[in-house]
Design a binder for these strands. Structure first.
Lengths: 346, 346
DNA sequence: CTCCTTTGCTCATACGTATGAGCAACTCAG
DNA sequence: CTGAGTTGCTCATACGTATGAGCAAAGGAG
């Protein structure tokens, strides 16, 4: 009871044969060019009939070769996707990418190409070939992005966007970036509205591009609003300086902006040791996504990962039609979360 | 400081021109066919020189077209992947699929095709066309698999495997299935080794293919080892029958095999109400993945999801080269977990 | 100086799709 | 009943790569 089964995917030529027309007619019908090509309803029907019967679907390789469109969005991560999906890093980006791709009728290619070593680190270029070319354009993401490869990719003119900030000298990489600068500014504005005049800033020890944005946004807002920044940590030593904490406890600073939850917790502990409470004595805001904990919700910002994923798809989509866009980056607003760690100045 | 960017990637023809040879010579040098093709070292050097100078990379679309292979594995889920990835259903399968695909140099296409309704339910065939054809072959998974679509896909000869059991009349769907039958048999064997002679089986109310395998495995082993099955639930009423529980409590049954954790918990409660303890008075084994809880670890089996994902890729890979394999299914062994709910008969 | 073998390539073609150019048949105005 | 315009297609070709077939030149045997 084995049914005869085909062994090779049908081509337009097969469809054409069945429908009794030429291959080019089939192409025109399928690609919707029928109007310009003056194909009457009846012929179209026959062609679609044959398509259905044979289960024809366009060969992406051939289409990519001839056209410059596959309706495929590539996703390249510089590490494996799924082991990390659990942690929130890739997961929500992919969620947004999948959602939006589905909406605009694109499928997703997950590039899994590895480098030579089995260390899980991935490369775009493997023995000289760039597999991304199969997709119309790609979304790249990852913490360990290889800048050399990015530069080469950009130079070759391949359409792609990078999720997250990544500066590469000599190339203008299109990036989708959370607008930390604006968000930081807004937090300062809110503090100013609540009467705070003397602020502090606590920064992380490591240097990464996204922190620059936060610092710039903070500094600009402080300047613009005529406030005073009194933190040695801002331009000097990174972490929490005991002497400065003493000053905060004395009331020399009424609101502190910190770069991470970890630092915020340290700050709270340091103040508690000096008999000061958050937010009664000092308001605190956090410049990253800060989940609620036992002590309540930090006033903080949200990294809109899903939205970023969706935006990346749209941005890439726009780039495909307009090569001029291939050097433009995009900022995605970061919503603020109202928490319980900021109050009005007494 | 904008660098001049190429619009078009260089082809083998460009390389050939620069190296002063023909396109086919370039192809042979690059594809390593040079030995057979008798190209001397000097010419090869010139070609590679030109390749370097132009930054040539092979066009994967063209290569795929010529080779009739895209090196793409499709993944189609009948529901959205990512929202579900969190829950363990898809997640570990995908993990295995990605791992293995990476190892054998295949990329993944995630099909995002939706059906008509925006209800998140997905279809393979959209307005009559089969989008899967884009990939060389596909792995299908999902709880709400549409049997009609499976049958059609199979009939069309498209290479695919289904993860999990799914019987479709008239089609021999290649499936990757956890070997519940063998695992159930092994559990019975273990009980027999520990001295148990009178067993019971508690089954779920719903009927699904995977349960058939468990029941068969149990029944076969009981028969083979000359044991006695005394459960009304096995062929009669599904759940836990109070009268039968009384009999178990009386000692008429010393070991019980149940289909789910939920039933195992009910069983334990029912026995506790009759002053009997697990495993002191009655041994209990569970025929599904049963995480450890406060009361310890169930003797149970593991559904090797990662391994299944990996196997699915390999199986599909083999099918691509050998069409005869397109009707064969594969069993993946289920390891047993030693827990604290089985002991030797006193 | 023949004839044969080996070397070092080139030629031609196929893969499946998209598209500019063009052709035959028909319609309709004059 | 002629000429122009429209309709409904087909023809031919290009895209970039891989590969079987084949050809010219060089080298060697006799």
């Amino acid at each position: 009871m084995t049914v005869p089964r085909r062994t090779k995917a049908p081509s337009q030529a097969d469809v054409a044969r069945l429908a009794g027309v030429s291959q080019s007619a089939v192409s025109r019908v399928i690609s919707g060019d029928a109007a310009t090509a003056r194909i009457p309803e009846e012929t179209r029907r026959r062609v679609f009939e044959a398509v259905r019967e044979l289960g024809y679907v366009a060969n992406p390789a051939a289409r990519a070769m001839r056209k410059q469109r596959n309706n495929l969005v590539g996703v390249h991560t510089f590490e494996r996707v799924f082991p990390h999906a659990r942690e929130d890093f890739y997961f929500e980006f992919l969620l947004g990418i999948e959602e939006r791709a589905e909406e605009i009728g694109f499928d997703l290619v997950l590039f899994t190409s590895t480098g030579a070593g089995g260390d899980g680190e991935r490369k775009i270029y493997r023995n000289g070939t760039n597999r991304l070319n199969l997709a119309d354009g790609s979304i790249l993401l990852g913490v360990s992005t290889d800048r050399g490869e990015l530069a080469r990719l950009w130079y070759e003119g391949y359409p792609f966007v990078h999720i997250g900030r990544r500066e590469v000298p000599g190339a203008e990489i299109p990036q989708i970036i959370p607008d930390y600068r604006a968000a930081s500014g807004q937090i300062v504005e809110r503090l100013a509205e609540l009467g705070h005049r003397r602020l502090g800033y606590v920064r992380e020890g490591i240097e990464m591009e996204p922190y620059d944005d936060r610092r710039t946004g903070y500094a600009e807002a402080v300047e613009r609003l005529g406030l005073t920044d009194t933190s040695p940590g801002f331009r000097g030593t990174p972490n929490l300086d005991p002497k400065w904490l003493d000053e905060v406890a004395r009331g020399g600073v009424t609101a502190v902006v910190v770069e991470s939850v970890r630092l915020a917790q340290e700050l709270r502990a340091g103040l508690a040791a000096r008999d000061r409470k958050v937010p009664e004595d000092v308001s605190v805001a956090v410049l990253e996504g800060a989940p609620a904990d036992l002590d309540g919700q930090w006033d903080s910002l949200v990294i809109p990962r899903i939205e970023i994923g969706r935006t990346a798809v749209d941005w890439l989509h726009a780039m495909l039609d307009d090569p001029k866009k291939r050097t433009e980056s995009l900022l995605v607003p970061c919503p603020l979360i109202r928490g319980t760690t900021i109050t009005a100045l007494r």
